[in-house]
C-alpha cells in the first residue's frame, strides 16, 4: 500500500468505454464488410482500406498538428466513419475521390466542430453527400457486382435508379420491378453502394448492437415502420406509379442508414420518444425524396435533415422526472 487514493463516489465504473462501444459498432459492421468484399471483389477491399486509413490518418494529423491535443484515434470513431463512408460509395470509386470524401467527413464535418461528440451531422454522410453532389459520375455509375468468384462486371443503375429513370420514361412500376425478386434484394445480387449490398448482413449487425445494448432499436424500427407505412399508402393509391413497401425497405441505403447512420449517438436524440420522432422524420423524408425528388435515393438527405433538428428533439422530448408531473 502506497498512498491511498481519495475520490468522490462512485468508486467503480462499468466496463463500457467510448472505445468499447465504438469497437462493438466496428464488429457489427464486419458481416457487411465481408459480404461487400465477397460480392464486389478485391476492389472493394481497396476502397475500404483507403477510406479507413485516410479517415484515421486525417484525425490523427488534425489533433496533433492543428489542435495540438492528445490524439483521439484510439476511440475507433474514425474507423467507423471510414467504414461507413466506404460502404456508402460504389466499389468503382477512384481512391482520390474517397480521400476527398474523408477530408470532408473528418476534417469538415467532425473536427471543425470539436471532434467526437461535438458534430451536428453524421460525418460519413456529410462526406457521402458531398461526393454525391460533387462527383455525380463516379457516385452514380453502378456496376453489377463481379465478386470474388463472380462473372464479368456489367454496368447498370441500381434498382431505385432503374425505377426512377423508367418512371420518367413512362413505364409502370410493375414492369420495372419485375426484374428483381426479394430474395435477390435480401441476399445481394444487385448493383449499388457496397453497403447496400446485403440486407441480411446489415440486419445481423443491427441485432448484435441491440443485444449488446450499444444502441436502442427504437430509431431503426420507427424508420422501417414509417417507410413501410408511407409506401403502403402511396402504393395502395397507385401501384403503377409508386413502388411497394418491401421493395422500398430492401433497396438503396435504407437498412445501412437506419441501422448504422441514424443510430449514431452523437447525431441522434437521446430519449426514446425523441428517437421515435427522429425515425419517423427520416422514414417520411426518405419516401418523399424517393417518390417526388430528383434523386433516386433519399436516406442520406433525410438523415442529415433530421440530424439538424436533434437539439430541438432533445429539448422537447425529455424523460419523465421521478415524482414530477
Amino acid at each position: 500500500m502506497s498512498k491511498l487514493i481519495v475520490s468522490p463516489s462512485p468508486h467503480i465504473h462499468s466496463k463500457d468505454s467510448t472505445r468499447s462501444l465504438m469497437l462493438d459498432v466496428v464488429i457489427a459492421l464486419i458481416p457487411a464488410v465481408i459480404c461487400s468484399v465477397v460480392f464486389y471483389g478485391w476492389q472493394e477491399l481497396l476502397v475500404l482500406g483507403v477510406s479507413v486509413a485516410s479517415c484515421v490518418l486525417l484525425e490523427w494529423a488534425i489533433t496533433k498538428y492543428m489542435l495540438k491535443k492528445p490524439s483521439t484515434i484510439g476511440d475507433f470513431s474514425a474507423v467507423i466513419t471510414g467504414i461507413l463512408l466506404a460502404l456508402n460509395v460504389p466499389y468503382t470509386t477512384p481512391w482520390w475521390v474517397i480521400v476527398i470524401g474523408s477530408i470532408v467527413a473528418i476534417g469538415v464535418a467532425k473536427m471543425t466542430f470539436g471532434g467526437l461528440g461535438q458534430n451536428i451531422w453524421n460525418p460519413a454522410l456529410v462526406g457521402r453527400v458531398f461526393l454525391l453532389v460533387s462527383f455525380p459520375t463516379y457516385m452514380t455509375t453502378w456496376s453489377q457486382p463481379q465478386g470474388l468468384f463472380g462473372v464479368d462486371a456489367i454496368s447498370g443503375p441500381t434498382p431505385l435508379g432503374t425505377v426512377q429513370e423508367g418512371l420518367m420514361q413512362g413505364a409502370t412500376v410493375q414492369e420495372l420491378t419485375s426484374a428483381y425478386n426479394y430474395k435477390d434484394l435480401l441476399f445481394a445480387n444487385l448493383g449499388g453502394s457496397a453497403g447496400e449490398v446485403c440486407a441480411l448482413a446489415l440486419l445481423a449487425g443491427f441485432v448484435y448492437l441491440c443485444c449488446r445494448k450499444v444502441i436502442k432499436p427504437w430509431i431503426t424500427l420507427s424508420i422501417f415502420a414509417t417507410v413501410a407505412l408511407t409506401s403502403l399508402i402511396f402504393w395502395g393509391i397507385d401501384p403503377a406509379r409508386f413502388t411497394d413497401p418491401a421493395f422500398n425497405l430492401l433497396t438503396g441505403g435504407l437498412i445501412l442508414g437506419a441501422c448504422f447512420m441514424a443510430t449514431d449517438y452523437v447525431t441522434s436524440p437521446m430519449s426514446v420518444w425523441g428517437g421515435v420522432v427522429f425515425g419517423v422524420g427520416i422514414g417520411f423524408l426518405t419516401m418523399m425524396i424517393r417518390y417526388f425528388g430528383s434523386y433516386p435515393e433519399g436516406v442520406s438527405f433525410a438523415i442529415l435533415i433530421m440530424n439538424s433538428v436533434v437539439p430541438l428533439l432533445n429539448m422537447w422530448f425529455k424523460q419523465k422526472k421521478f415524482g414530477r408531473k
Binding site: 498512498k3 481519495v6 468522490p8
Partner: peptide, 22 residues
C-alpha cells in the same frame, strides 16, 4: 508532503467538499 492521492474532478470546490486535503 502529500499523505494521499486525490483522484477526482480537478476542482478545488469539489475537492474541498469531499475532504480536508491530500
Amino acid at each position: 508532503p502529500t499523505l494521499n492521492e486525490y483522484n477526482g474532478y480537478p476542482s478545488c470546490k469539489v475537492k474541498a467538499a469531499l475532504y480536508s486535503s491530500d
